[in-house]
Design a protein around this nucleic acid. Structure first.
Lengths: 200, 200
DNA sequence: CTCGATCCATAACGACGTTTCAGAACCCGC
DNA sequence: GCGGGTTCTGAAACGTCGTTATGGATCGAG
């Protein structure tokens, strides 16, 4: 038979890490197959034998990014008070996105033309929403919210946070608008919209 | 002195139209300088003498798209009832985005790597928000909403609509989730969050 | 030690954005 | 009317991209 593989799992991981680093630190334009290969000290062929295409490589980064993002949301300490937790999750959402804007763009924008998520990849992004759904269900169970589907409320709140973050990252906020200063107020209103009765 | 220009304003308009058509019908990947030049029957040099770069060309499409988008929102008939108008605007927002998803991506995503909006281009996107700010101010003047800055409420509602549309276009909705069926309910909750008193 | 199979880095291919360049087209002064 | 100099033009060139073909290097089996 033949020589042993150099293009092994260790290299696969190194490529994935370096791809994430390139994206995070220099943006989507910096991630090219040539550049990536050179930075980890191998050839483009190696990347292709391990990943097959740029699209597949970026998908790996995409899934990894969702994994980290979901972990950050999971790590938010729970207060036992569902409405408090919803706010905390929203704040953690923005912090996570701002901590690595380029990765957030890979997850939710189509910043890399070669890659767009496949239907099955939707699950990755939906897992992001799990803690949100849990908190909404708790609130519903406590009779705090109007009777609606938990999924509907969760999607609405998710979209509220995503919309704010997305506009902020895209530079679409009004001049001088202090999003950080109004973010909690906005999240609060979004949640309050589903209240059964207004709080005192 | 010299020969008259062939690369005149008429050609500039034709290029802009064709660029918009390419984007709308075939997506961002189809918009290349060579393809564009060939489709309007000229050379790439012509595009460069008129626009200077792909970035500048896409910026023209970007501004044009915001113009059309804003016009659609301006054209929404007003009921005199600010809360009704807020819902109508939200619905028109989604309809406009879904009518030309690729253009919406150019406006709010960074789908074309060569182009990202300059600071001054923020005004274009903000004008989209004008009818929204007007309706919010009317509602505030009518004492319907809690006393907050109109800009804050408008940004929150805008982000709610944008977030929903953006997640929908990106394919991030849960499997089988009927956004169209829940969209008004969600918008209603977003507005209700700013109510002074809950409606009957 | 030789052979054959396997893997890998180099180099090539087509397409991209952009720029260079030689010539064609034009206006002005005569 | 007709050069001459200026300006504009399209074709071709440059470097980079994603991707793929190729030929040499490398190893185990006999």
């Amino acid at each position: 038979m033949a020589r042993p593989k150099l293009h092994d799992e260790a290299l696969r991981v190194r490529l994935l890490d370096e791809a994430g680093r390139l994206l995070s630190e220099e943006g989507p334009a910096a991630l090219s197959m040539r550049r990536l290969a050179k930075d980890v000290g191998t050839s483009t062929t190696a990347v292709y034998s391990l990943y097959g295409s740029k699209s597949a490589l970026v998908r790996a980064v995409f899934l990894e990014a969702f994994g980290r993002f979901g972990a950050r949301l999971d790590a938010v300490p729970r207060s036992g008070e569902p409405l408090t937790d919803l706010l905390r999750l929203g704040i953690a959402y923005r912090e996570s996105a701002l901590a690595d804007p380029h990765l957030y763009s890979v997850m939710f924008g189509q910043v890399i033309p070669e890659f767009e998520p496949e239907p099955g990849d939707t699950e990755a992004s939906l897992s992001t929403m799990n803690p949100l759904v849990d908190a909404v269900q708790s609130a519903l169970a406590g009779g705090l919210l109007i009777p609606a589907e938990a999924e509907t409320i969760a999607v609405a709140l998710w979209a509220q946070a995503h919309g704010l973050v997305s506009l902020e990252l895209g530079g679409h906020m009004p001049d001088g608008f202090d999003l950080a200063g109004h973010y909690q107020e906005m999240l609060g209103a979004a949640v309050r919209g589903w209240f059964r009765d207004p709080p005192a």
